[in-house]
């Protein structure tokens, strides 16, 4: 019968139309600016810089090693080193960035900077509302705009932030153990030198 297929299709359409009133699974859209679908935990958009503590300038983790700048495929990161050093979370004196710019009009959010960063300082944000009226300035994010707290990182990617914190705790422990070993070695060497000196003194005394 001609028209049977069309009728069958219309029944399907009607089922979907009425279904969307009863079954929330069939109602798939939300009205965006008023309602928002919560972001997935892994969702990524553009990178940001993490700082520890309350002061973003003192707590910035970035040591301006420029690895991300080198590895970034579209080369959207620009870093200039500062002459002044500052202590990092281990107490070591480290470099810090004087300028750290990310051009989000060039960035493609590929996450390669995050993967190559050896200091856990650059991570992906899930904020996507970057629209502005200016083509250039508003899309070039500077250091102060990029710096976001570790607390914020925990709020957007809890699992990943937990893992990062664990890595940093491990690093600190390793560092402390290393320092301890170093101190012990130093003490031992001192002791050895002292006994050696005493021995040689005794020998000298014997010769005389």
């Amino acid at each position: 019968m001609i028209g049977k297929g069309i009728l069958k299709g219309m029944v399907e359409t009607a089922r979907n139309l009425t279904g969307s009133f009863h079954d929330p699974d069939r109602l798939t859209t939300v009205e965006y600016p008023e309602q928002k679908i919560p972001a997935k935990e892994n969702a990524r958009n553009f990178p940001f810089l993490i700082y520890d503590g309350d002061d973003w300038e003192a707590g910035l983790r970035c040591v301006s090693c420029q690895i991300c700048e080198k590895e970034c495929p579209p080369q959207c990161i620009y870093i200039e080193k500062d002459k002044e050093k500052k202590p990092d979370f281990l107490g070591k004196m480290q470099m810090q960035p004087k300028i750290f710019d990310i051009d989000v009009s060039v960035c493609m959010g590929c996450q390669i900077c995050v993967e190559v960063c050896p200091f856990e300082s650059i991570r992906m944000d899930n904020d996507f509302e970057y629209a502005g009226s200016d083509r250039f300035e508003s899309l070039l994010l500077t250091k102060d705009q990029l710096a976001k707290s570790n607390k914020y990182y925990h709020s957007i990617h809890p699992t990943e932030a937990q893992e990062t914190d664990e890595i940093r705790v491990q690093k600190r422990e390793d560092h402390l153990a290393k320092e301890k070993a170093k101190a012990e070695k130093l003490a031992k060497a001192k002791e050895e030198a002292a006994t050696k000196a005493a021995l040689s003194k005794a020998e000298k005394a014997k010769e005389e």
Partner: peptide
């Protein structure tokens, strides 16, 4: 695409 997003972070540009 939701599955891809929760796995890789992006819906289409998974990398």
């Amino acid at each position: 695409l939701d599955l891809f997003e929760s796995l890789s972070g992006a819906r289409m540009m998974c990398n």
